[in-house]
Write a protein that binds this DNA or RNA. Structure first.
Length: 287
DNA sequence: ATTATTTGACCGCA
DNA sequence: TGCGGTCAAATAAT
């Protein structure tokens, strides 16, 4: 299939480039933050968006290091081949041993474009589980899927399990700054403004804790696909305010109720990126 | 007309 | 055998 699969060296360079870009942008942001002019806020948002996009790409790139040839996801290899197989409908392989990681968030947005393909009542769960696949599954063979389940303890939060990683990222993505994309509604204004990526438990794999944008529901049909890295920040209605500043080291940011927070420093990334290029997030770092 | 969602059926795996 | 993941026809939305 037309799988986008740059060699390791290319990806490494790409990742470094993304990180460097992120750092540069963070520096720019730092300068802007000290500018009291109201107009700076917009600029800051824009830069912030770029930073997030840059990191998101970098993380995705890292993840692809080990994703190569994993082919462990759903039997169909993107060419919608074995879908019907000989046995007709429902003939598919259950994904096994594929990369998966879980995040807890107040929104289901994560910067990618998803399409819902199923919903299931789960035993002993008050809320159903929704299944999403990348909208690029068929045209680009992207194998990424995710499962979203509302948490019983806190219905405003969602446990999102990502399975597999995106292989479609370089071509396009769908950043739509449309906040609420709640599968079960929950369109309250506040629910959308905050983005609290609390990477909860991770098994392995990449995660995109950054609100690059997007919305699994179509909600606003506007732009369909875009590229996170650069132009998605301008209109983000729910973009939180920034409440903390960049230090000398590149900080990791996260959103919280009262805004954007620095998550300490690069050591976070160090810990996120495991030995094999795996991303390991620890929720404790995010708050 | 096209694209996305809903939902019951189907199937793999524990 | 039952649960949970996926498929795809029907339906809704754009």
């Amino acid at each position: 299939m037309a799988r986008v699969c740059p060699d390791a060296d290319t990806r490494k360079k790409r990742m470094i480039n993304d990180l460097l870009m992120g750092r540069d942008l963070a520096v720019q942001l730092q300068g802007i933050m000290s500018d009291p002019h109201p107009s700076s806020a917009d600029k800051a948002r824009e830069i912030l968006g770029k930073i997030l996009g840059s990191f998101s790409r970098g993380i995705s790139t890292v993840s692809s290091f080990e994703g190569d040839g994993e082919g462990s996801l759903s039997g169909e290899s993107g060419e919608s081949k074995s879908r019907h197989g000989e046995k007709g409908r429902g003939c598919y392989k259950r994904r096994k041993g594929s990369q998966s990681w879980t995040a807890v968030n107040s929104t289901t947005e994560d910067g990618y474009s998803w399409r819902k393909y199923g919903q299931k009542e789960i035993l002993n769960s008050k809320f159903p589980r929704c299944y999403y696949r990348c909208t690029r599954k068929h045209d680009q063979g992207c194998k990424a899927t995710k499962q979203v389940q509302r948490m019983e303890e806190d219905p405003n939060m969602y446990q999102i399990t990502y399975i597999g990683h995106h292989t479609c990222r370089e071509i396009s993505r769908a950043p739509q700054m449309i906040p609420d994309s709640d599968p079960w509604e929950l369109n309250s204004p506040d629910a959308r403004t905050e983005f609290k990526p609390q990477i909860h438990r991770q098994d392995h794999g990449p995660v995109n804790p950054f609100p690059c944008v997007k919305d699994e529901h179509r909600e606003d049909s506007g732009s369909d696909l875009t590229d996170c890295p650069s132009g998605f920040s301008q209109d983000w209605p729910g973009f939180p305010t920034i409440s903390s500043m960049v230090g000398d080291d590149l900080p990791i940011w996260s959103f919280s109720d009262d805004g954007f927070q620095s998550l300490s420093n690069t050591s976070f990334l160090d810990r996120c990126i495991g030995f094999d290029g795996e991303l390991e997030f620890d929720g404790s770092d995010l708050l």
